[in-house]
Amino acid sequence: MKFTPALQTATLIKRYKRFLADLKTVDGVEFTAHCANTGKMTGCAEPGFKAFYSTSDNAKRKFPQSLQLTQNQFDHLICVNTAIANNVVQEALNEGAITELVDYQTIAAEVKYGQENSRIDFLLTGEHKPHCYVEVKSVTLLSQTDPQSGQGYFPDAKTERGQKHLRELIEMVQQGHRAVLFFAVLHEGINQVSAAKHIDSKYAQLLTEAIDNGVEVIAYKAKISAEEIKLQEKCDFLN
């Protein structure tokens, strides 16, 4: 997914009220940007981090700028706009770049499914093969106790919604379909992913149950720059 034009840079002053971030340009101009992230953003939005933002030409927007990336103290680039995860995964699916998910003829997004009134991120269909339900999760939580380890975690906060998605994926497998939990790693410092048992033990337990029931887990890491974000390589999932 390309940023056109390329993102501009500033310094992050603070992130607050979940959807807002104050930034300061090199010229000393301060402004408020929209931050499309409902999570805690632990380790991703500390004051003083370098920030990368886009500017919308929509005159109706209260905050024309959007915070897209940050750069931490280890110079890792991090995509903090969670909506981008689905965009980069869809692009990779269209290009056949995810080897585990090729040879499907149709890719549909945001399809209603399941008993708990959910929407699957992507439904892949093809002739003479089971439907494939793909739930995408953005991974940006790097180990805070050992940030040089490359260990990433999901989720970064307790998530009842994420637990619901796991139950729905289990149901799809039980109905004879294929179900995939796809971790899009959008943090340059993360090289492997695990369930965050220390944050949401119920989610971790449900994920183990899902795997035992046939839900597949796939993790791919993105290459990140001010010009583009693109899934590049598979990385390990450690249950």
Score class of each variant (00 low, 15 high):
14 K>Y: 02
14 K>L: 01
14 K>F: 00
15 R>C: 08
15 R>V: 07
16 Y>R: 06
16 Y>V: 04
16 Y>I: 04
17 K>I: 06
17 K>C: 03
18 R>V: 10
22 D>A: 12
22 D>S: 12
22 D>I: 00
25 T>M: 03
30 E>Y: 05
31 F>P: 00
31 F>T: 03
32 T>D: 01
33 A>I: 02
33 A>H: 02
33 A>V: 05
34 H>Q: 12
34 H>S: 13
34 H>M: 10
34 H>A: 13
37 N>M: 03
41 M>C: 10
41 M>K: 10
41 M>T: 04
42 T>H: 09
43 G>P: 05
43 G>H: 07
43 G>L: 08
44 C>F: 04
44 C>E: 06
45 A>V: 13
46 E>W: 01
46 E>G: 01
46 E>L: 13
48 G>C: 08
48 G>K: 08
49 F>S: 02
49 F>I: 03
51 A>T: 06
52 F>V: 05
52 F>E: 06
53 Y>V: 06
54 S>N: 08
56 S>W: 12
56 S>N: 11
58 N>G: 00
60 K>G: 00
60 K>Q: 14
61 R>M: 15
61 R>N: 12
63 F>L: 15
64 P>H: 10
64 P>S: 10
67 L>Q: 07
67 L>P: 00
67 L>E: 08
68 Q>H: 03
69 L>W: 05
69 L>A: 09
70 T>Y: 02
71 Q>K: 12
74 F>H: 15
76 H>M: 06
76 H>D: 15
76 H>R: 04
79 C>S: 12
81 N>R: 14
82 T>Q: 11
82 T>I: 11
83 A>D: 14
83 A>Y: 12
